[in-house]
Design a protein around this nucleic acid. Structure first.
Length: 461
RNA sequence: GGCGGUGUAGCCAAGUGGUAAGGCACGGGUCUGCAAAACCCUCAUCCAUCGGUUCGAUUCCGAUCGCCGCCUCCA
């Protein structure tokens, strides 16, 4: 039975989908004004893994993730580079999709762009206007938070306390300091869309309400994002949607903890800003397996807790990943059939139990390691069929976590070298054998001569 | 000030009312002609501190201290 921590109730709840066997989920996507960084990547990878696990558990998942392609930051960036805002949005939307693909993140079923969903937003704003919840001011259309009874319930803040702590400049045009823009009137030269109240662009929160409602329904199962979105973004989305539709917006709110770099929040001024694109390119020589190491690193801690990114921590994970990677390579070079059963632990069962407990990937990964170790023990005992069974079990778990090692085809040259070395060893011509071994090493392979056979292992670098 | 998170071995990191998963590193060993970034084993009398509840707490409650974050359209 799957359990999920719900930010709304601040407790772990049994998961019950709205429609039997189906899960509708929405995760806040990027504002495309730059490449995305390792912190964004954490959110994307966590929810990709959750989605995958839901599917593995038998759910049909409908996954929507927006692309915010109009926003102040985009306009600002465009101005500083002297290009059209749309050029910035297009460039970084493309980059976003490329980087996601390199991380093996499955594309969302629906990738709505803000600029393509303006009509749905206008309809929602009109709905709020009709209900007397929104009002027009000099600068735009605003949401009157005093009209929504449950305001603050998601972030567990009281309105007066929010006001006290507010560091925002008081906007005289707003009725209440907490009121937020649904529609911002454009200034000359700014991008704008026609609207009944005046030309402008959408406020930050409205797109998610409009798009999730349109594609997933007024009520849907899971809404996720980074922890910093709880307030104000998700609080405001909820206020908009529930006030407009009169029904519960989201059943399970999920938030991913912060990713720090060497213990500090990442920021450009501190020079500890890491784009995922750069990590993918620079971290290892083995590009095909870099995404797996990154994902394993991200999943090594529970998704709700903080996670510290550093080279040392990555290296530690990479060294651990080798165990899985090498086991997979040996498995691929063994021709035996799997044993019918393994007397011992039921790794898959343990794995599922871990994941069912609010996606405890840390514990799930421990199952993968234990299984790999058990497989190697069998190999050492020359129980090849048991090794194959356990190796396959390990790969099943890897597939769910999406860390399946990417193997190289071993070219004929290496196979030939291995044969020759084996021959030379039998003839005790060790000096010649060593020369050939060195040759193999130069191509990135190490050759293992074990009781269970000879393996050519591509090193992970 | 309000709210939230967090403090577990050298490092990363799970977890439980009955005495601590897993990974990395270290150390020892095994296989091997030698060797490996291979394999095996070892590695927290203890879970920030101080109280309380309990037969028993790292796990529950209270307090204290430390670190991080949100309350500024930052995931």
């Amino acid at each position: 039975m799957l359990k999920i921590y719900n930010t709304m109730s601040q407790s772990i709840e049994e998961f019950k989908s709205l429609h039997a066997g189906e899960v509708n989920m929405y995760v806040c996507g990027p504002t495309v004004y730059n490449y995305f960084h390792i912190g964004n990547a954490r959110v994307f990878l966590v929810f990709d893994t959750i989605r995958k696990y839901l599917e593995y558990s038998g759910y049909k998942v409908k996954f929507a993730q927006n692309v915010t392609d109009i926003d102040d930051k985009i306009i600002k960036k465009a101005a500083s580079e002297g290009v059209l805002w749309s050029a910035i949005a297009e460039k970084y939307t493309t980059a976003y999709l490329e980087d996601l693909a390199k991380l093996n993140v499955t594309p969302a079923d629906i990738n709505p762009k803000a600029t393509e969903e303006i009509p749905a937003m206008l309809a929602l704003i009109q709905n709020l206007m009709d209900k007397g919840i929104a009002y027009v001011s000099k600068n735009g259309v605003y949401y009157d938070v005093t009209k929504f009874e449950g305001y603050g319930k998601l972030s567990h803040q009281k309105m007066d306390e929010l006001v006290e702590g507010a560091r925002v400049e008081v906007d005289e045009e707003k009725k209440n300091p907490l009121d937020f823009a649904l529609w911002k009137f454009s200034k000359p030269g700014e991008p704008s869309w026609e609207a009944p109240w005046g030309a402008g662009r959408p406020g930050w929160h409205i797109e998610c309400s409009a798009m999730s409602g349109k594609h997933l329904g007024a009520t849907f199962d899971i809404h996720g994002g980074g922890a910093d979105l709880v307030f104000p973004h998700h609080e405001n989305e909820r206020a908009q949607s529930e006030a407009a539709n009169g029904v519960t917006f989201v059943n399970y709110w999920m938030h991913v903890g912060y990713l720090n770099i060497r213990g500090e929040k990442m920021s450009k001024s501190k020079g500890n800003f890491a784009f995922i694109r750069d990590i993918l390119n620079d971290y290892m020589q083995d590009k095909e397996n870099t995404a797996n190491v990154i994902r394993l690193f991200i999943l090594s801690a529970h998704y709700r807790g903080p996670l510290d990114f550093s080279n040392d921590n990555m290296d530690s994970v990479r060294n651990g990943y080798r165990e899985i990677y090498y086991t997979a390579q040996r498995l691929a070079q063994v021709k035996a059939k799997p044993a019918a059963s393994f007397v011992g632990r039921d790794f898959i069962k343990e794995f599922k139990e871990a994941m069912d407990e609010d996606f405890n990937t840390s514990k799930a990964i421990a199952c993968v390691y234990d299984c790999a170790a058990a497989a190697k023990t069998e190999l050492g005992k020359k129980n090849i069929e048991s090794f194959v069974l356990l190796g396959k079990t390990m790969l099943e778990m890897c597939a769910v976590l999406k860390i399946t090692p990417v193997l190289k085809t071993i070219d004929a040259q290496i196979t030939e070298l291995a044969k020759q070395i084996d021959l030379l060893r039998k003839e005790k011509q060790y000096e010649k054998a060593d020369i050939l071994k060195k040759q193999a090493a130069e191509t990135g392979y190490m050759l293992e001569f074990t009781a269970a056979g000879t393996f050519a292992i591509k090193e992970l670098k």
